[in-house]
Design a protein around this nucleic acid. Structure first.
Lengths: 247, 247
DNA sequence: CGAGCACTTGATCGCTTTCAATAGCTGTGG
DNA sequence: CCACAGCTATTGAAAGCGATCAAGTGCTCG
């Protein structure tokens, strides 16, 4: 697999997620120890990385691409409960089986560690445990933010909220200022957006069309989005346009 | 305040949440250090413990009673994003201002630490940091479980889910077996349940009446609930009655 | 050119909300 | 002791939003 080969010999110092991942606070010697037990795996878009209920032999970080955590009810209803971006961590030290499906939404490369050695490292390396705590607290905040979206926002507000999150992340990665138009590609299908937002894909499609008609967004093709006025989008999301960027 | 006096001199060894709270893994000497910086505060039902946006001077554990984390939109829509039971932790080390309102749902007693000394303790006491990581991961799981409820379940299933959670917790606290009827008092008003479930209080009331009519539950007064058949309730919640108790 | 997939759009249905009236309970004061 | 305010909860009727069912578009790939 070409992607895998691409990452096979990357060393941690040059890793694109070095400063944000679970290893962010590690000293040089700690990094070397991690380097010895890490390995890369790549997954194609659509592939299931881990099945809910299966034993988890490894933990790891998303290096590139987007993965999702999904819960499914017996009758097939599904809800996405997490969106994993580069640097996000997968797996819970100490847990035996996976509680959710983990799926590659785009092509994904992960930096993996077998669970046992990683747990041992964690016990002896406070920097890793501390960083993991920080990241988990951030994820908890994000999950709670999303509970407000799921529980109380209208379909239109839900779409605007999702677009605003993706736009903000993109602006922060690309160091684009928050003035002027923001342009990005949607990394999710309509169906994935629906699973994230607790909607049907038809409703997602309709609301995107409506936002387009009202010039809150512009579309080229199905996925390429332009946000002419970020403040406007955040109003549509029901967020306070002032406070929103502090997140 | 009498409640406060009641807890003023409690020592940690006898503390009812000793084995579950953030201090659970502490050794005797670590506990003594914590003991020196702790203090108790009590709050009456309905009181706001912390206002969203306010500086957080302390962190702490719920000793008794129930508190809730709530987010509010500008137009007044509110969503509960966390239910804090005894032993649950409030506050995030390293954070300056509170992201949510924390409200006392019943009378509440908290074991508090000023933030600064607690952060210092945490840095020097891996047992505390490790326990906090565990607890945060558990909360994250609970939040994600709730995202499925909010995003994909019907009103009836939402109510059944909430009742089943409360019933399970009660059964585990009281060491009641899971066979035979379960009896408990609802600690939440209809409005609080609605805020938790992303519903209106009218819908909550209607669905409770419906579950009563269908003998899934029995009510004495407005709050005293009997669950004759837990398996039945879990079916109504849309959960797998087999797997559900493993949580 | 046709199959397959992602997406859009239309029409209708039904669940939850909204608006509104009422009941039951508790505490207060004449 | 009763009247009444204030609160929580229930119930009814109507409206609205998103789901469901269904058809059709546009694109890519064999």
């Amino acid at each position: 697999m070409t992607l895998k080969a691409l990452y096979e010999h990357t060393n941690c110092e040059e890793c694109p997620i070095r400063h944000r991942a679970v290893c962010a606070h590690c000293e040089k010697d700690e990094l070397e120890a991690l380097e010895k037990i890490k390995y890369y795996r790549s997954f194609e878009a659509g592939q299931t990385i881990i099945w809910s209920g299966d034993p988890m032999n490894f933990v790891g970080s998303v290096v590139s691409g987007i993965a999702s955590l999904t819960q499914t009810m017996e009758d097939g209803r599904t809800q996405m409960v997490g969106l994993l971006l580069p640097s996000d961590f997968v797996g819970r030290p100490g847990r035996e089986t996976a509680p959710y499906d983990v799926q590659a939404t785009t092509d994904v490369v992960m930096c993996c560690f077998r669970k046992k050695p990683f747990e041992e490292m964690m016990a002896s390396t406070p920097h890793i445990a501390h960083r993991l705590l920080q990241m988990t607290l951030d994820e908890l905040d994000a999950a709670r933010e999303w509970m407000l979206v799921l529980g109380r926002k209208t379909a239109r507000e839900k779409i605007a909220s999702l677009l605003s999150i993706i736009a903000r992340r993109d602006a922060s990665v690309n160091k684009t200022g928050i003035t002027g138009p923001i342009v990005f590609d949607l990394p999710l299908t309509r169906e994935a957006m629906a699973d994230y937002l607790g909607l049907t894909l038809e409703t997602v499609s309709r609301q995107i069309s409506a936002l387009k008609k009202d010039t809150v967004i512009t579309l080229e093709g199905k996925r390429h989005v332009t946000i002419p006025d970020m403040g406007r989008l955040m109003e549509e999301a029901g967020d306070d346009a002032d406070g929103g960027f502090l997140v």
